[in-house]
Nucleic acid binder design. Structure first.
Lengths: 339, 339
DNA sequence: CCGTCTTGCTAAAACGATTTATCAATTTGG
DNA sequence: CCAAATTGATAAATCGTTTTAGCAAGACGG
């Protein structure tokens, strides 16, 4: 007793039963028949000794670890990572699971290594997360273990969790239309190759498809379509500055992400264009930025928390197929007449 | 062989030796004396069967798991979390350790629970991370396991990793002084109570101490000191807008974090004040924002990646005492004459 | 009164590694 | 030539659970 933790044998001794009895009672097996009194004695002994089971022994015996692996390409580079991780953390806490986080940098060898070391540890399931939604190529033969791809797709894994980009695209159009500013809209950030699926970013393709469908349903067309390859503030600034200087000013901007919108705000500030009086802006992602801008940026949010949670649920339930998570509109002050 | 993974016994059988031999050779024990030939046979057999040791069995026997617990109060709320996690991930990968991430919300019961479940799993060490630097109260008696407090302090744990806020404060003053704009500086965001240590945020106290020391060493004094409780863009905007309207305009702003500086940029834009021609700005944190602003914001960076890495190193080395990680200046365009 | 059921519990064999004690064959030393 | 040391390896115990097979005692049925 002086040395080491209290073990199940200690509990058994104190309760005056065998350790098999302790094991069965504490793990709450359904079809056993111990007396009420034995139940009570065991529970009391365990409590008195503040017994905690040894996870390694249990994992060795049962081949399950009550832990999930969260393997991602980049925790670092994107500000979205913690949404996904936070959601996964919440989901796994609720399911009584631990989360082992690994990062691969997207390098195939490291991905294989991560999966191997997950398997070494009798992991109960793997969440393979991509920080930038993309088609994921899993290493060699997928192991015989529940798996889900989070924020990406993969032909080797039958279960995906993705944002409902198409719905989100429609939603953005709806916001503009209902505010009555859909007449003169500039679409900022399209990319020909992307749209045709050449770069296999399925989500972005769907986002655009939703936007175009929404416009078409309302019989609307864009006044401008500005192509931008790199969705960063500086590019958004340049594009919108040029647009505002052109004389043919739009009454609304539909930016394909918040960073472009941020650049647009800067261009407006320098050109003396007021948001939303002169120009309404809506975009996508609900980046942390969006709340800081003046006026607050109305944006269609990426539901990363929810996605992380669902990934855990699905990997534990071994669900198959694609799960689309709705992208809620976060209405702030950047659309005239709304918010 | 058809059922389950290949085990050490399989390797032993194929190499024609005992499993004790396999264990000792594969784990590279130093003082054993097996023939070269046996070494080769064992390694070859292991490779041919692509043997991987069962982590649970090993943990059960050795009481070590080759895994660290990263227990934090909030992964969510702050954008700094992934810097710390990323660093810890990098450090643990290098040390051949896994990282189990847990989140407690700062709730004492959940903190205790997290520590308990870490101990259940024969964790090799605990990194207790605070997302907002603060004094951490660890649950009850600290367990007999290596521990380090990351981005916080604790009287119950002898090892801390903190940013060198005092050096950072000095550095900010140096940048302004060398640009020759230190004469008319407004300090944005002080807080009386904080500075006197009433809210036990040691780092912020030190940041201010460094700033004041830097000014004093140069025989300088602030032209304005604006007190702000909540360091958010909206508050920075209000404060700086008022300052610019006052007629007694400073030539430089020393903002206590990037979000305040962001608010300051907005106030400048509305007041027609140009950065850095009319007003130089420097701040702290190197938030993602800082790179997006026009001109880029010069800021003293919080070295979260490095801190996360060091935390791992220290917990494995069982180092004691306080480690101060330098805060590097990231020079962009917001100070006149520099960058 | 004897066989069969049910009740309440336990003995002992896994799980797959590590580690201690030991052993048989050589080599070495005196 | 014999005792002691060295070399190269192994048998078996151990870590702390879970789980299968089964045991003893009383209840029940006919």
């Amino acid at each position: 007793m002086a040395k080491g933790r209290t073990t199940m044998a200690d509990v058994a001794r104190r309760a005056g039963v065998s350790s098999a009895t302790v094991s069965m009672i504490l793990s709450g097996r359904p079809d056993t028949r111990f007396s009420q009194e034995t139940h009570a004695r065991v529970h009391q002994a365990a409590a008195e000794l503040s017994y905690r089971p040894n996870a390694a022994a249990r994992a060795l015996r049962t081949d399950r670890s009550h832990a999930l692996a969260f393997i991602s390409d980049h925790v670092a580079t994107t500000r979205f990572a913690n949404g996904l991780i936070r959601g996964a953390l919440k989901g796994s806490a609720r399911a009584g699971q631990m989360l082992m986080v690994m990062e691969t940098g997207g390098v195939p060898e490291r991905e294989a290594l991560a999966i191997d070391s997950a398997l070494d540890r009798q992991i109960d399931g793997i969440i393979f997360a991509s920080m930038r939604a993309r088609e994921i190529t899993l290493p060699k033969t997928p192991p015989a273990i529940p798996m889900v791809v989070l924020n990406g797709t993969s032909s080797q894994c039958p279960s995906w969790v993705l944002p409902d980009e198409e719905g989100g695209g429609r939603e953005a159009v709806r916001l503009l239309a209902e505010a009555g500013v859909a007449g003169e809209v500039a679409l900022i950030g399209i990319n020909e190759e992307e749209e045709r699926g050449l770069f296999r970013s399925l989500p972005i393709q769907r986002r655009l498809a939703g936007i175009r469908a929404g416009m078409a349903e309302r019989g609307l067309a864009f006044a401008h379509e500005v192509s931008i390859w790199e969705w960063e503030p500086a590019r958004g600034f340049e594009a919108v500055a040029a647009l505002l200087a052109s004389g043919d000013r739009p009454s609304a901007l539909l930016c394909l992400n918040d960073r472009l919108a941020f650049g647009a705000y800067q261009a407006c500030a320098e050109a003396g264009v007021r948001v939303p009086e002169d120009l309404s802006i809506v975009s996508f992602d609900n980046d942390e930025l969006a709340a800081y801008l003046r006026p607050g940026l109305t944006t269609i949010a990426l539901p990363h928390d929810r996605m992380g949670e669902l990934a855990v649920d699905r990997v534990l339930a071994q669900s198959q197929g694609e799960e689309l998570v709705p992208m809620p509109a976060v209405v702030r002050g950047s659309i005239r007449g709304a918010g």
